[in-house]
Simulated assay, not measured.
Amino acid sequence: MDTTTRANRDAWEAASEKHVREYSELLAQAASGTSLTTLERDLLHDVLRTAPDVVHWQSGHGTDDIGLLQAGARSVTGVDYSEVAAGAAQRRATELGADCRYVVAALPGAPLADGCADLVYTGKGALIWMPDLQAWAADIVRLLRPSGHLFIYEEHPAAPLWTWDPDEPGIRPDRSYFAPSHVNDSFPAGGAVQWQRTLAEIVTAVTSAGLRLLHLAEHPEPFWRMGGVHAAAWNGRLPNTFTLLARRLNG
């Protein structure tokens, strides 16, 4: 693990303590299935009705995994480099009797067998921690069975540029859409390095790895809002998230 990844992991470990403190609230959220949004359910409907085995890359606190099971997944394996997050997620899944298991590991390089998944699900603050998109995409393809799917619901690459001004949306003067990275001092990053890339770079990594693009859309709604913040950038005029669905080519 390189120095930057290790520092990022330490920041995420510290942020994940919040998930432990909020265990009861997250348990209720997981049980309700509301962490998996209507948008995600609609886009994944045809995939989930086939009862897929799911690998959740960078699974975090794991509340989405219960929603995936409720929507039709046969099993979910979560992979995250935070021992705190994975431990809390496993405890919640066990308490709810859900068929989820969690593995602590840095990614890419998931310690899982080739062809173990019908669906790799990721996003909601995951891609910003991946310095090498080509290695990221190749490892996902390795995990997928023939005709398996990748689904991403993620922060739009332009969203880190928006100011949180409550009156008018603006662009931060200290960030660039084309910069390789930036340091984020807000929660949950805590001073960690977040990797910046364009939407074109993400799509190119996916398709170059051997996945066929089935769906790509940009959305004005953020997947997460900082408590107490009411940013004009979230009011429908700017892209804040995107969804992507792709299928592995056979062979």
Rank of each mutant, 00 (worst) to 15 (best):
E201G: 07
R92S: 00
E168Y: 12
D185I: 08
A15R: 11
L211K: 06
P220D: 10
G60L: 09
V76W: 05
K18N: 14
T243G: 03
L26R: 15
S32L: 05
E22F: 05
A85F: 13
L36T: 08
E13V: 01
D46P: 09
H230G: 06
D165R: 08
Q196D: 08
G72A: 05
A88Q: 08
R248Q: 01
H230A: 15
A209F: 05
R21W: 09
A192F: 10
L68D: 01
S147H: 15
V84W: 05
P188Y: 08
P239T: 06
L213T: 03
S75Y: 10
P160C: 00
P220F: 12
N250T: 13
H56T: 03
A106P: 02
L68Q: 03
L143K: 01
V103K: 07
D46C: 06
L238D: 05
P166A: 00
A137R: 08
D42F: 12
L26E: 07
I152E: 03
P166E: 03
L213C: 03
G33L: 03
D10C: 11
Y102P: 01
S181Q: 12
D174K: 14
M130W: 04
R237P: 02
A205H: 07
R41C: 01
L112C: 04
H19M: 08
G251E: 13
L48Y: 05
L107W: 11
P173Q: 09
A137C: 05
A179N: 12
L249T: 14
G115A: 13
D10F: 09
W195T: 00
S176Y: 11
C100T: 10
A71Y: 10
V20E: 12
A93G: 00
L69D: 04
A71N: 11
A14Y: 06
G123Y: 09
W129P: 04
